[in-house]
Nucleic acid binder design. Sequence first.
DNA 1: ATAATGACAAGAA
DNA 2: CTTCTTGCCATTA
Length: 108
Amino acid sequence: MGTRHEPAAYVEAVLDVVELIPAGKVMSYGAIAEYLADRFDRGSARRVGTIMALHGGSVPWYRVVNAVGRLPPGHEITARRQLAAEGVTFRGERVNMTAHAWFPADGR
DNA sequence: ATAATGACAAGAA
DNA sequence: CTTCTTGCCATTA
């Protein structure tokens, strides 16, 4: 649907979604791209990752992890500390996605 | 215009 | 579990 692909608008949309993620929950790059797919034609996990790398500093970036729960390269220490403080549990190096993966719409 | 490069993802082996 | 291959899309060289 939505045939819109304004770069700035997409960046804004991504950051907005990240701000919606509740403490103690996480979303994957792919989930964010999937959620925005309704309103933006061009979008991808790849794109969301790039956006987070460049503009993630203004939002709770540590609540965004990859599909298997791995933390963003170069920021594992900080991210893990933040998440642990919010009650997120880990399975080795990975976030326990089964317990903390979150998606809008369903509220929660 | 082609090629390489990413805070990615899913499937095959 | 690890590695490789495809598909993805913007950016940079």
